[in-house]
């Protein structure tokens, strides 16, 4: 308990304390800084975008992994976990080798907004796949067959039967991937170039504040990120308990 307090609770409390040092007015003025605001906007838009991409493609990949059968499927299954295990800085370097200078396919996205999207998509890839996959595996195909025998089309079956049972898992995965996308740092360092107003995300902004010695401003922005993280955890807990009740 003491270790946990020293390691997690006390430092996080210190962030909030440092953030409130300037009072409300200080808090707002730190947030209203143009550059910070641009970073927040970029991060949130990109995180939402990537989460939407993940909702669609993550569900597709999970479906393919569970219901489809083809040569090399187990390889695909292992590759999904790679972004989890890869150090984030290496993730950035790896993406840079295909989408940066001297790209073998002639795409150069480094230092643009696309690079941010790409990096976030890379690190959040496993979340929805791994939350949806087990639910899809457990899903009984009897109901689908019954629906089909009663004349439902494939699209209707998907919309009315499969999708509702996957929804909580998709929501949980989406929350995780959104939280991760908001807080990502390592993979963006090399890839995005961190150009103010263009490719600078919130985490990088916090780091710049720290390096300039303005810990209070850093703490203000950090406390907002902390609040988002807490919010996601509470939301996840609620979703999971609703699902648990339904079973």
């Amino acid at each position: 308990m003491i270790w946990f307090s020293l390691l997690v609770l006390l430092p996080l409390a210190a962030v909030v304390a440092a953030a409130s040092q300037g009072g409300w007015s200080g808090y707002w003025s730190a947030l209203q800084n143009d550059q910070t605001w641009a970073a927040v906007r970029l991060t949130v838009t990109q995180a939402v975008l990537v989460t939407l991409v993940n909702i669609v493609l993550g569900t597709v990949i999970a479906w393919v992994l569970v219901r489809d059968r083809f040569w090399g499927k187990s390889v695909l299954d292992v590759i999904i976990d790679v972004p989890f295990a890869l150090p984030t800085i290496v993730a950035g370097l790896v993406l840079l080798s295909l989408y940066g200078q001297n790209s073998p396919i002639g795409i150069e996205w480094a230092n643009t907004e696309r690079a941010v999207t790409l990096a976030l998509a890379f690190v959040t890839l496993p979340f929805i796949v791994r939350t949806v996959q087990p639910v899809l595996e457990e899903l009984d195909t009897d109901v689908e067959e019954a629906a089909a025998s009663l004349g439902a089309s494939r699209a209707t079956i998907f919309r009315r039967i499969i999708l509702p049972s996957l929804a909580p898992a998709i929501a949980a995965g989406a929350a995780l991937s959104f939280a991760r996308a908001i807080s990502e740092y390592g993979s963006l360092v090399l890839l995005s170039g961190n150009r103010p107003f263009e490719t600078e995300v919130v985490s990088v902004r916090v780091l710049t504040f720290i390096e300039n010695g303005s810990n209070t401003s850093a703490a203000v922005v950090a406390s907002v990120m902390l609040a988002v993280a807490l919010f996601v955890i509470v939301a996840l807990d609620l979703v999971q308990r609703r699902v648990a009740r339904r079973w």
Binding site: V8, L10, L12, A179, I182, S203, V206, I210, N215, A222
Partner: peptide, 19 residues
């Protein structure tokens, strides 16, 4: 679960402020 969804930069800052 907090460390999983909080940014590593925020973690670094938090430890920096206390220690």
């Amino acid at each position: 679960d907090l460390p999983l969804s909080v940014s590593p930069v925020v973690v670094g800052l938090a430890l920096l402020l206390v220690y």
